[in-house]
Amino acid sequence: MSALVIVVSAAPASAACNYTTWTAGTQYYTGNIVKYTNGLYYIAEHDNPGYDPTISTWFWEPTSCDGGGGTPPPACSYTDWVAGKQYYTGNIVRFNGSYYIAEHDNPGYDPTVSTWFWDPYNCGGGGGDPTPPGGFVVSEAQFNQMFPGRNSFYTYSGLTAALSAYPGFANSGSATVKKQEAAAFLANVSHETGGLVHVVEQNQANYPHYCDWSQSYGCPAGQAAYYGRGPIQLSWNFNYKAAGDALGLPLLTNPWLVQNDPAVAWKTGLWYWNTQRGPGTMTPHDAMVGQRGFGETIRSINGSLECNGGNPGQVQSRVSKYQQFTSLLGVAPGGNLYC
């Protein structure tokens, strides 16, 4: 029997201070306001499964009964943000006419890019909603910065829509681990697709080779139908069959879904990342959550051709992109980067 999950809808600011008392283990969503046992009110800054508002301060922020926050500063006299300046949790700055509050100490990261370190702030004292759509640790602005020349097929909304298929992805472990996993996935995806440019495999001469007739189900969509598609370049009839079965999609008979539906494409990439070991000894997801390092994700994706000195140039390409993305997200890349 599955556990009962209590869902709380966001309350309007005019709720006349009749917000319900916070309950441990209740699912809360960004914007929910609760009354804590100390008589004070807190607003959820991020979705959370009932974390204590006085302990999990990244998820909760003190607020007034009407949701307006604390006492506003005199005439909104906060100083302008300065790149490279050290800021500490609670510092408030003005940036491009808007205000931001430091949620974590940082050495002057851009408030509109490093959204884990900065939270939009209402100059009148209230907080903003920094959580990207779908609760993903990579914001749309960061995604756009990672893939400035991407194919329009690879939408951010398609990616966030696909997250529900594997809710543990980039959502397990510490905040650092979550961002490292997202960066690792997107770095490998970038390498596989030329920066999210290619939706389908470019060498059409390879297309007929991806049909393994030894499988009992054969290749019902045609011998040349199972070429590489999507962010991980899903290929071979048996992979389409396995991914389709896992996702509840008819990919064996209709592999074209992967190149026509952005959410389906992203789901196939997440399927491989979260469930397949490839030539490695663990899934890429387990490698990152278990802090085994980015190098193990390379091994699981293409280790038989690239690792152990097989193609150091390709490995370096993946590692460089991972380092770029972790820097953008404001986290260290960790160890064991190579395979």
Rank of each mutant, 00 (worst) to 15 (best):
A3G: 15
V5T: 03
S14T: 14
A24R: 11
K35V: 12
H46N: 14
H46I: 12
P49W: 05
D52P: 05
T54A: 06
S56L: 11
S64F: 05
G70V: 09
P72F: 07
A83W: 01
A83N: 13
N91A: 08
N96P: 03
A102I: 01
V113R: 00
W116K: 10
P120R: 15
G126E: 01
P132M: 06
G134Y: 10
A141L: 14
F143K: 08
G149S: 15
T155E: 10
A162S: 13
A165Y: 02
P167S: 13
G168S: 11
A170P: 11
V177P: 06
A183Y: 00
A187K: 00
S190E: 04
S190F: 01
E192Q: 14
Q202W: 02
Q204M: 06
Q204G: 08
Y207F: 05
P208F: 00
Y210F: 12
Y217W: 12
P231D: 07
L234A: 14
L234P: 13
N239R: 09
A243Y: 05
A246V: 03
L247F: 12
W256S: 14
V258M: 08
Q259L: 03
P262R: 01
V264T: 13
V264H: 02
A265K: 05
W266C: 04
G269C: 09
L270N: 04
M282N: 02
V289Y: 10
Q291C: 14
E296F: 10
T297G: 11
L305K: 03
Q314E: 02
S320R: 11
L328A: 14
G334Y: 12
Y338H: 03
